[in-house]
Amino acid sequence: MEQKTAREYIQAVHALIKTANFVSNAKRTQKLSLTPTNITTSLKFLTNIYNTDKNKDPPQTCKKQTLQDKPQPSIYNSTKHSSICSRSTHRPACSQSLSNCQECPKLPSQGLEEIGRYNKNLTPLNELKDGKYGKIRFIRGEHNVLQRLLDMGLTPGTQIKVIKIAPMGGPVEVSVRGSKLALGQDIARNVFVEAETATTIP
């Protein structure tokens, strides 16, 4: 049940293209830590979105873009926009290829909510190095997960320290407000922090 935003996906592809002309599925898989099947479905999905968008009136606002294992037909017909959607500063910015909001695919929020504000200088928690600090700026996830993270003290603006990331896609151990927590990879990669160079006591 991997979830990836189209933005992350395209960014990954872009980053890889810079280093080589040809990007293999295996490379993409590695970069996004997805299974090859997921990549294939994702590609099909993107093509689908592209085709659908050409035939339809583009939406006025950007929406959160989430790639799921299976394309869900209903999402192409969705016309409803959530209130969060209009706050363009709150969600990950669109990738270059979809920089124009008019090109954005119409995707429902897939039950995901977000807190804080996104900007492109933020780093997901799982990409922070061991022992590094960051300030939480943006979290995306299901309501229950967000509520639990908030309860545990991961509120926007809080300083967080990555103590250790377990090998093989394991959880991230963080220290926040004096307590130690283990966050699974799926959660950690949706917690975005502003990396700090100075190491101060949290």
Partner: peptide, 8 residues
Amino acid sequence: STGLIMEL
């Protein structure tokens, strides 16, 4: 599956 959030 949901993700892991656990206090150590």
